[in-house]
């Protein structure tokens, strides 16, 4: 199986190389599959489940599932997007995602995903309202874990790219959350140039003193829905 092969996403033929995941092949073909924990440059994790598709009749995370010849994938269907919207909505309920006052607003992938999926207000589930102290001990970086969605990007970046292990998970089940390897961030060997400091999809890892310097209108998602760059490849 060293030759490219084809499979279908929502009835559209997609060419894949052997070893590519469904998401990688979809990206190359200009088909966007929503995702939150996956990002270019980091190993796939399959944790957030937002990228879940139906492949061969089974629900799989498309960022980890290899594409196969002849596979039939359901991606952009009402049923798939409803589940994704539910997942995103639950993420909003788990944390304190106050978009109106968050400096990540407009550049936040969670917010952008909510817009893409048509989730205009999280109203259906009880809010967990975490009350975690903001860690501003580091001179260049602050950490507001009330906004963390446990995507694990910072953990993978710190371990795999920076070779540091600044971040890790603590706790189990619903209590699992990202923590730093020390009493606070200033206790770690984190520096602003670390890959881990640039991969947070939400406003949890904050680059100090940037704040709202980027004007409304110039923010990443002011120019289009999340995923629009991928979709433009197919136009």
């Amino acid at each position: 199986m060293s030759d490219p092969f084809t499979f279908r996403i929502d009835g559209v033929a997609v060419t894949a190389k052997p070893g590519q995941t469904i998401m990688e092949a979809a990206d190359a073909a200009g088909i966007y599959i929503p995702r939150l924990c996956d990002v270019d440059g980091l190993r796939h994790q399959g944790g957030c489940r937002v990228c879940t598709v139906k492949a061969g009749g089974r629900s799989v995370s498309s960022c980890t599932q290899p594409a196969e010849p002849g596979l039939e994938v359901e991606n952009n269907t009402e049923a798939r997007n409803r589940v994704r919207r539910d997942l995103v909505e639950m993420l909003f309920h788990e944390g304190n995602h106050l978009c109106p006052i968050c400096e990540k607003s407009g550049n936040c992938e969670l917010q952008a995903m909510a817009y893409r999926l048509g989730m205009t207000a999280p109203t259906r589930f009880p809010y967990l309202e975490p009350c975690r102290d903001l860690d501003a001990s580091h001179p260049d970086i602050a950490l507001d874990t009330n906004r963390c969605i446990s995507c694990g990007r910072c953990i993978r970046a710190s371990q795999d790219v920076d070779g540091k292990g600044v971040f890790g998970y603590v706790g189990r089940g619903i209590h699992r959350r990202v923590a730093v390897n020390g009493d606070n961030l200033a206790d770690t060997d984190a520096v602003l140039a670390d890959k881990a400091m640039s991969v947070c999809p939400v406003g949890c890892i904050i680059r100090k003193n940037e704040g709202f310097r980027m004007p409304i209108g110039a923010r990443h998602f002011d120019h289009g829905l999340i995923g629009h760059e991928i979709e433009e490849k197919s136009k």
Binding site: P100, I101, E103, D133, A136, I206, K208, G211
Partner: peptide, 14 residues
């Protein structure tokens, strides 16, 4: 209290 200084002009306008 506890919020970062550059957030303040955006928070308090609410």
């Amino acid at each position: 209290r506890g919020r970062l200084l550059w957030e303040v002009p955006v928070i308090v306008q609410r």
